[in-house]
Design a protein around this nucleic acid. Structure first.
Lengths: 110, 110
DNA sequence: ATTATTGTTCGTAGTTTTGCGAACTACAAA
DNA sequence: TTTGTAGTTCGCAAAACTACGAACAATAAT
């Protein structure tokens, strides 16, 4: 009884939050924009788009990779990055669903 | 010459990142989902949806407010929260634009 | 005046993020 | 073998994030 505070977050909310978090930095948005439009995606090209050190760029790329939004492929001596289209569409669907939630009541704030 | 490293991020990328960052936590996604669907949005109701202390809930609400995604209104002795519909739609538009970016070339990773 | 209700703010602690330069890896070229 | 190119990883520092309990503020009820 009382209040069940064993509550966890839903898988969907966790996943959406993970995508959102990955997008939660202007450098990473810039990277994603770049990769989504142009596909000529070597590390160096990405680095050139950004006002930050390569070590930092590498870290941002790793985060995007970990979130599943991009993927990298070694093409010696360069590394080619691109959008992970499958997860990209998944993310898109998550955000779409999220924003299209309809109100069930209208009894709040004005 | 050389490389112009005075580059900054675009306003749009900054704004989208700000929205995304605000959404980058499952508690905040849960709050937004709750507020977007049901509108009976007192602090206590929100707190009940979440497995965290009220102080922490209050902080998350503050972040969402700072990002412009929600708004609060005192209704003594309670506080009523709701989606900031104007910015909500703005955010929606930002994400939509972001995800609908079309490729210009297709020369990457397989 | 005291007590209860509803949230916010404060102080604190531990973790994560962001950023950099330096060191390193892997390969190719000289 | 040495040098160069392209990135990653390491080590570090500063800042931001997440979370909590305790203290506080504001009002209403006793």
């Amino acid at each position: 009884m009382e209040n069940d505070k064993n509550k966890e977050y839903s898988i969907d909310n966790e996943q959406l939050a993970r995508f959102a978090k990955a997008m939660g930095h202007p450098a990473r948005i810039t990277i994603l924009n770049f990769l989504a439009s142009l596909d000529s995606c070597y590390f160096g090209d990405i680095h050139n788009e950004l006002p930050i050190a390569k070590a930092t760029v590498s870290q941002h790329l790793k985060e995007l990779k970990d979130a599943g939004l991009i993927q990298g492929e070694i093409e010696t001596p360069k590394v080619k990055y691109c959008i992970n289209r499958e997860n990209w569409e998944k993310a898109q669907a998550y955000f779409e669903t999220f924003f299209s939630l309809k109100k069930e009541k209208t009894t709040c704030c004005s």
